[in-house]
Structures are given as C-alpha cells and as structure tokens.
Amino acid sequence: MSTSPAVPPSSALDLEGVTRTFGKLRALDGTTLSIPKRSIFGLVGPNGAGKTTLFSVIAGFLQPDAGRIEILDGLAPGDSRLLGRMSILPQDALFDRNMTIVDQLMLLRRLEGASRRNARLEVAEALTRVGLGDYLERGVSVLSHGMSKRLGIVQAFLGDPELIFLDEPTSGLDPRNAKRVREVIRELSVHATVVVSSHNLFELQDLCDHVAILDRGVVKAQGSMSEITRGARRLEIELERTLVGEERAAIEALAGVRVAEDLGGGRYIFPLEAIENEQGNRTVRAILGELLRREITPRSFREGSSLEEIFLQLTDDTSE
C-alpha cells in the first residue's frame, strides 16, 4: 500500500485498487472509491459484498493486501495524525462489560484530549440526546440490543470527528430511534463526512446524497444519489385511478415514451427513451400535461429508479 499526497481537497477518502483476501475468499477485489467531503455517503451491497471489510480496512483494523488508501488529506490508515479525526460504529463490536458506560465513553473523549470534567459533561449530554441519560453509571450488560446500538452511535459522534463510519446504524432500532439517528446524521453532515452502510435502501435513498454499490468486493456504481437513480430514465407515477385503455394508449403514443408497466392500484412506470436531460424533461412534462388535460390527478411521481431497483440490477443474485 502506498500513500501519495495527491488527494483532491474535495475528497475525504480515496481508495484505489484495494484488495483484501481471507484465505481463498476475495472480500475486496480492487475496490476503488472516492468519498466527497461533507457528504452523507451510502455504501450498499448484498451480504458478503465486503462492506464491513471495507470499513475495517479504512479504519486500520485489517491490513489490505494491496491498493492505496488516502484518508483526510492523504493519510494512510493507522497514521497517528488520524487519531480523533475519524470514528466508527463497528457492526459486531461489543462494549467492555467490565466498565461503566460513563467510564468507557469518558476514556474515549479523554484519549482525544478532553479534560475529565468536559468529557463527563459531553458524555452525559450525548447519552441524554439518545435517551440513555439514566444509564450513565450502569454497565452495558443492562442495555437491550437497540440501546447498545444507540450507545455505539453516541461513541461515534463524540468529539468532533471529520469522518464517521456507521456500519448499519439503524438496524435493530425502533422507528422512533431510527428517525432520531437519521436526524443526528443529517446534523453532523454539516461538519463531517458520514459514511453509512445499510440494507435499508429506502432509508439510504432518503438520507444520503452520494452512494456506492458494492458487490463481491467490487464497486459496481458510485456517484451522487440522483446520478445513480436517474441512470435508467423512467417515470414512476401514482394516479387517483387506473387508466383505461384509451388513456394509457394516448400516453404511450407520446414522443419518447415506451410501453407502460402497470404496477396495479393506479401505479405505472413509463420508461423514457430520452438519454439527454432536456429531452427527458420534455417527455415528463408531456406525460403530466396529458394526464392533467384528461383530468386525471397524479398523486405522486418520481423520475428515475429507486435505489433498490438499481441495486437489484447491479448486484449478483447469487451473493450470500
């Protein structure tokens, strides 16, 4: 692995050709990725795609076999200048059962340079923010799965990290706490780059502004969320009622529209022939105009594919 200073300032993290094998299994296979600064970056992939391995390699828990990793101004994983600037919510890590919650988090803050008093105040405030204020002096053994997850999130957000990795941060959380975590991620992204891996693609599509799809250790697609989801141009539309044959035929006859797919319940997908942006926009306006002219009210519409559809197209269904 080599380090060169040529990191574009807009990048929080650059990976090039990163490979990591476990015996015969190639968990990362020449992974190349660039994560823009101050973005909320979604990392998606099927089970075994290499997401956790990728996080572990970036965090320096695992050594890569080959490749280049540059973090925050060209630093390599494990560089002491990264201490306190990066944090992670690891997927399967457990907290120490032999220390109180407050001691564990205070140690983390004090390692970053906080005084004992400030560390305690910050920890108490952070725990209260995620509803764990009453557990300050308790051990982690009293926490449920969801509470432990929230504790993990708290430690990742402690201090002032510039780059935060969250491996499945909302798995096991109830909807209220999942929403709270998403809000915290949004707040943090003003000051930090947040990389989130999750299987909840709807959540990621809503939360992230950039995304990469990883499959068998290879990045299949990456870019801004709109670039990725608009890659296959189509209009998904939900109407107040089902279209009758003549209405549907009229829309399909519009320039740039292919044969519609009826999803049932008044929901249709109209694939668009347009490749160019302006041409696509004209087609969308034409479809909506035709519907309004016929006094059919669209309840909702979305241009492009959902992240889930892109994910299913790009990933191998034999992945485990």
Binding site: L83, G84, P90, A93, L94, D96, L111
Partner: peptide
C-alpha cells in the same frame, strides 16, 4: 477478551496500537 468481542475497535481510532 477485547479482541474476541471487538471492544478494542472503539478505542483504536483514538489511541495507537
């Protein structure tokens, strides 16, 4: 023990090995 249960991972980005 910390290696087995991963507790060490919480500290490793704040302290060198």
């Amino acid at each position: 023990g910390d290696l087995q249960f991963g507790a060490i991972r919480y500290q490793l980005l704040r302290v060198s090995r």
